[in-house]
């Protein structure tokens, strides 16, 4: 219990991850699925960045030449998540574009109704 309270960033991230995962899996509406995917990705970003954050330290921008590594937070997770955000944005855009095309062809974005219209 104590661990959950001290690591509140991680706890929140895991709860968000669960919310996003369930939304992505169980909802039939495609837009809601994409929203769920975004929540899931954001949860991972939160988790990752909280791993690199150290209480009371600064952003890693060198102002004086002789600054040591003790003054800064870990910049690597932030850099990684920048890549992750770009990937998530492109995935979202691609999924939304496909959803628009699907709506044009089928006239609905409810996945269970689309699956009923089988065409062999």
């Amino acid at each position: 219990m104590q661990g959950i309270i001290t690591n509140y960033f991680e706890t929140g991230a895991i709860i968000l991850f669960g919310v996003g995962f369930v939304t992505l899996l169980l909802h039939n509406n495609l837009i809601k699925k994409i929203i769920g995917m975004n929540i899931m990705d954001t949860a991972i970003f939160l988790f990752f960045i909280s791993k690199g954050y150290i209480e009371g330290r600064e952003a890693p921008i060198v102002k004086e030449i002789n600054a040591t590594k003790e003054g800064f937070v870990n910049p690597l997770p932030t850099g990684l998540m920048l890549t992750g955000i770009v990937v998530a944005v492109s995935m979202t855009a691609f999924a939304l574009a496909l959803t628009i095309k699907l709506y044009e062809k089928y006239g609905t974005i409810e996945l269970n109704e689309i699956m009923k219209m089988r065409s062999d």
Binding site: F21, L24, K33, A95
Partner: peptide, 8 residues
């Protein structure tokens, strides 16, 4: 959608 789930 399933791939996004997997990569997440």
């Amino acid at each position: 959608i399933l791939s996004i789930l997997g990569s997440g």
